Amino acid sequence: MIQIYHNNRCTKSRQALQELENSGQPFEVVYYLEAPLNKAELKELIAKLNIKPFELIRKSEKIFTENYKDKTLSDAEWIDAMVKNPILIERPIVVSGDKAVVARPTERIKEVL
């Protein structure tokens, strides 16, 4: 089943959700801010995205600019930061099977459908 890691306060996330609704395919919405990912789940998601943990960080978030901007952390430390502060996770993320994309722009969803 397709999943979207969604933050309803984010315009891009709402656009991606609409794109999935329009696709007619069944999907599940994961509200990752309400039910944060644990370390194992986040590692699995990053593996499906085929990126480094730092690439999943929202660098415009206040938490990042105040606490992490000038730091050089290991992959494990970035994962810990995202587990502790899920708002740092870039969104929206769409997962289908063993593939995932950060749906920015929204058209990237087609890469996993």
Results as ranks from 00 to 15, higher is better:
Ala76Ile: 08
Phe54Asn: 11
Thr106Ala: 11
Thr65Pro: 06
Ile93Met: 03
Ser23Ala: 01
Ile51Phe: 00
Ser60Arg: 13
Val102Leu: 07
Ile109His: 00
Thr65Tyr: 15
Lys99Asp: 03
Ser60Met: 10
Lys99Val: 02
Glu77Cys: 09
Glu19Arg: 15
Arg9Thr: 12
Asn85Gln: 11
Leu56Asp: 00
Lys84Leu: 10
Ile63Tyr: 02
Met1Lys: 09
Asn7Phe: 04
Trp78Ala: 08
Phe27Ile: 01
Val83Ile: 02
Asn50Pro: 04
Lys84Gly: 03
His6Phe: 14
Lys71Met: 09
Gly97His: 04
Gln3Leu: 04
Glu28Pro: 07
Gly24Ala: 10
Lys59Phe: 09
Ile51Asp: 01
Arg9Trp: 06
Ile4Arg: 00
Ile89Lys: 02
Lys59Ile: 14
Asn67Glu: 15
Leu37Met: 10
Asp80Asn: 12
Glu77Leu: 08
Pro36Ser: 09
Glu41Ile: 06
Lys59Ala: 11
Ile4Val: 11
Asn7Tyr: 12
Gln25Tyr: 11
Ala47Lys: 12
Ser13Lys: 03
Ala100His: 02
Leu20Gln: 01
Ile46Lys: 04
Lys69His: 11
Glu77Gln: 15
Asn38Thr: 04
Asp80Ser: 13
Gly24Asp: 07
Pro26Glu: 15
Leu73Val: 06
Met82Thr: 05
Tyr5Val: 07
Glu111Met: 02
Ala103Val: 01
Ile51Leu: 12
Ile63Phe: 03
Ile57Lys: 04
Asn85His: 15
Arg104Ile: 00
Lys48Asp: 00
